[in-house]
């Protein structure tokens, strides 16, 4: 029944090997990309249409529930996608332990912070008079 363990005894006591979660970043990266692709096209078309528009027009457009929801969905997917993208870049190039953890933390703060700011603003526009 038991599968043959290919790990060496040393690897076993060091807990090296699959933790059954190694592909999570990859899967989330592709899933969010799938969401971002059409949503970003919608956002670009919207922004192009709003070029030169005054404040009231732009505000009314973003306040439309469909537009608000699509924008918030885009921001949510964007935040997850960009956090992983920069996370794997840091993991690739920053090898000093302390600096790496600091950079990873800063990355998470920036990504979630941007997401929080955008979503708060979109909700305020949507719920505002």
């Amino acid at each position: 029944m038991s599968k043959k363990d290919m790990r060496t005894p040393l690897a076993k006591i060091l807990h090296l090997g699959s933790a059954r979660s190694g592909t999570e970043d990859h899967v989330v990266q592709r899933a969010t990309a799938l969401a971002i692709a059409p949503l970003s096209v919608f956002a670009v078309v919207s922004i192009v249409a709003l070029v030169g528009a005054d404040y009231e027009t732009a505000h009314a457009y973003v306040a439309n529930p469909v537009v608000s929801i699509l924008l918030i969905a885009l921001i949510g997917a964007f935040v997850l996608h960009m956090r992983i993208g920069v996370k794997i870049t840091i993991e690739d190039y920053v090898h000093t332990e302390g600096l790496k953890h600091f950079a990873l933390l800063a990355n998470s703060f920036f990504s979630y912070g941007i997401g929080l700011a955008c979503i708060y603003a979109a909700l305020k526009i949507g719920f505002g008079s």
Partner: peptide, 18 residues
């Protein structure tokens, strides 16, 4: 990475509008 930094502009646009 450019787009990552550029999200600050998206945030600025929405916050300004709000």
């Amino acid at each position: 990475i450019g787009l990552y930094a550029g999200t600050a502009l998206l945030a600025w646009w929405l916050i300004a509008l709000a």
